[in-house]
Computed example of a mutant assay.
Amino acid sequence: MTERVRIAVAGLGAVAQSVHLPLITRRWDLFELAAVCDLSPSLRDAVGDQYGVPAERRYADVGTMLAEAEIDGVVLLTSGSHGDAALRALSHGVAVFCEKPLAYTLAEADVLAEAEAALGRPALLLAYMKEHDEAVWRLADLLAGVDGVRAVEVCVLHPTGASQLDFANLRPAPADVDPKALARVRADSEGLLDTAIGAGTPQRLRDLYANVVLGSLVHDTSLLRTLFGGLVAVDGARAWPDDAFPPSVEVDGWLPGTVRARMSWHYLPDYPAYEESLVVHHAGGSLRLTFGTPYVVNNPTRLEAVSRPENAAAGGVVRSEFVSTDESFENELVDFHRMVTEGQRPRAGVAEGRADILTSQRILRALAGDDTLTGEAAKS
């Protein structure tokens, strides 16, 4: 294996087109795009032509690609659980760059942990880009020096995905996906949801788990894990209104050290722009992270600190700001390259992904209320 990692991309939709493929090309010094995979023949040919991937290295099936293509790593951007595709990759000795979610079930995560252990090296990076944001790292450094953290508040204002990606000039949604292949993917997803939260669970709860709690809110779950160790208890959750989907979702719980946490996630189709903030209130002030639209490359993340002056007798308020223009999606690709070439453990891997699945099941259990869950979530 050379220092340039031969990489494949599975799933050529919006995130691949707007972020990952351009960044892989920009980091020509680290990566060679060696193969692509998608259920749509027209999409894999269009993307393959655009990025110079030979026709014989364009695949409809992840398993076939892993068996035939000469690659060192795979970027999993397909929809739904990535558990099966990640396991296939690890079984071929191929390192995995895994977008959200890692998997739908704890059982999938446990099998992945066994497969990675059998390789004897780190081989799966959990690609939640906010964990690779320089402003998040700076916040972690600041938290190490403060006392008396009392509360953490997260708020996400989420317009439509299309409005967030207007700038990206995405290719039209393909109409040539094999319906049988799509039906198999959906059937696999339904079976995993049965395992995770129980067969017969109301459809709204199934959609909340797959598309909201694991599909988006998991980014904030992972931030709380990265910065504070994660939610140790979920003692309340609600979703409203009943006649809209996706709805607003609010989660209350505890972080280690008796710190209260609240996550508020609001899908607002006509909201003018995506906004996300994480605010920490501690005995001596506050710390606020503000994220921009995630798919705009090098969009600044702002970290603001409010505190008293060092000379407390002077009175007044000190406000400072750190602005990061490092690209978090690029940072995680660099982290992946180090994992593959140097054996360096990534910031988050299978164990962290499993912890996020466990928290997500606890959130869904709180959302279910009187609708009793079975499956793994009944015991989580």
Results as ranks from 00 to 15, higher is better:
Arg338Glu: 12
Ala244Pro: 00
Gly285His: 04
Met1Thr: 15
Pro309Phe: 10
Asp178Leu: 06
Leu231Glu: 03
Thr78Ala: 07
Arg338Asp: 13
Met1Ser: 15
Asp147Asn: 09
Tyr104Glu: 02
Arg238Ala: 15
Phe31Ile: 07
Ala378Ser: 15
Gly161Asp: 02
Val53Ile: 10
Phe167Asn: 05
Gly52Met: 09
Tyr128Phe: 05
Pro122His: 04
Ile363Thr: 01
Glu116Asn: 05
Leu268Tyr: 00
Lys379His: 15
Asp45Ala: 14
Glu250Ala: 08
Ala273Trp: 04
Glu352Cys: 05
Asn211Thr: 12
Gln203Glu: 15
Glu376Lys: 09
Pro202Thr: 11
Glu310Trp: 07
Arg6Val: 04
Ala107Gly: 14
Gln50Asp: 09
Glu330Ala: 15
Arg319Glu: 15
Glu3His: 13
Val19Glu: 02
Ala183Pro: 02
Arg4Val: 10
Thr359Met: 03
Val259His: 01
Ala34Ser: 15
Pro122Met: 06
Glu190Val: 02
Asn298His: 13
Gly63Met: 04
Pro309Met: 07
Ala115His: 05
Asp38Ser: 15
Pro294Leu: 06
Leu33Met: 08
Ser163Met: 07
Gly48Asp: 05
Ala237Met: 09
Glu99Leu: 13
Leu119Ala: 08
Val47Ile: 15
His337Val: 08
Pro101Phe: 06
Ala368Val: 05
Pro241Met: 10
Thr105Cys: 10
Ser222Val: 13
Ala283Phe: 01
Val62Arg: 04
Asp178Cys: 07
Leu66Glu: 06
Leu217Tyr: 02
His20Trp: 14
Leu192Trp: 00
Asp371Asn: 13
Phe167Ser: 07
Val297Tyr: 00
Ser324His: 09
Thr290Asp: 09
Arg238Pro: 01
His337Pro: 05
Met1Glu: 12
Gly343Ser: 09
His219Asn: 14
Phe336Gln: 04
Asp220Asn: 13
Leu205Pro: 07
Asp84Met: 08
Thr290Met: 06
Gly83Tyr: 03
Arg345Gly: 00
Pro179Ser: 11
Arg206Cys: 08
Gln361Tyr: 00
Leu289Tyr: 03
Gly230Ile: 06
Ala181Asn: 05
Met1Tyr: 12
Val280Tyr: 00
Ala314Met: 13
Arg186His: 10
Leu287Met: 14
Glu70Ser: 14
Ala162Thr: 11
Ser42Phe: 01
Ala8Gln: 06
Asp371Ser: 14
Gln17Asp: 09
Trp254Arg: 13
Arg362His: 06
Cys37His: 09
Arg362Gln: 12
Gly353Tyr: 00
Thr201Trp: 01
Arg88His: 10
Ala261Ile: 00
Leu364Asn: 02
Trp240Thr: 10
Ala377Asn: 08
Gln361Asn: 01
Gly257Val: 09
Ala34Gln: 08
Pro22Cys: 08
